[in-house]
Amino acid sequence: MLNSDAFSGALLRASPLTITRRVIGALVLRELLTRYGRNNIGFLWLFVEPMLFTLVITAFWAATRTIHGSDIPIVAFALTGYSSLIMWRNMGNRCIDALRSNLPLLYHRQVRVIDVYLSRLTLEFMAASTSFVTLALALYAMQWIPAPENALQVAGGWFLLAWFGAGLGLILGGLSEKSQVVGKLWPPFSYLLMPLSGVAFIADALPPKLQQIVLWLPMLNALEYLREGWFGSAMHAHYDIPYVVVFNLVMMLVGLSLVRQVGINTGEE
């Protein structure tokens, strides 16, 4: 009989940072396993799925020559637009009801409410980024898209979008624990936001009035910045980065406060 007496040295009193890192790592792996299992290609689906989405849209636009109002190569245009959309949309969607299905986890002293959300956000960010980078490299290798003119600016735009997605996820996650209605209302609302956030157009191609309105959307600003980094010489970008940063900061604060309230109110099982 094996002995359980020797089981000590658990990280029960490690530093908060070490514990958080471990917990988020464990939650990410657990989420991967429950979502994709060990069948066929397993958790490769994590980024194959968004890659397929992006490829289909890209192929469709390239085939139909959908008008987007600029000289930008259509493949690069679709790749940047759709990858960005997938990232912030999935980050938001995946946080809805995230805690409700994971309440028993809170019995472990190590796991905090915020960890559940952070792990989902990490996972979606990894998925979208891997998909984006893999597709970009593959398409570049096939000479379908040019290399970015300013890779750093592309990365900057990408992180601004991820930051927005994280704030959005925390807000939706927090609200969805307060009221189930959020999970029902968000999908139709997100369908309204999607076409407006620059997936299929650049701001410069819009009539000035409409342009002024849609540029209130931080996702569009960040995407314009990202696209300028990729093929700036082929377009005239419109964006206001300080505005995006302030918007993201406010969302982040609201999101964190909502998640904190969830932590205080949980537990009517």
Partner: peptide, 13 residues
């Protein structure tokens, strides 16, 4: 993983 301990001996147990 959450508690940061060795997996193999515990699985055996």
């Amino acid at each position: 993983r959450i508690y940061g301990v060795d997996f193999q001996p515990r699985l055996e147990f």
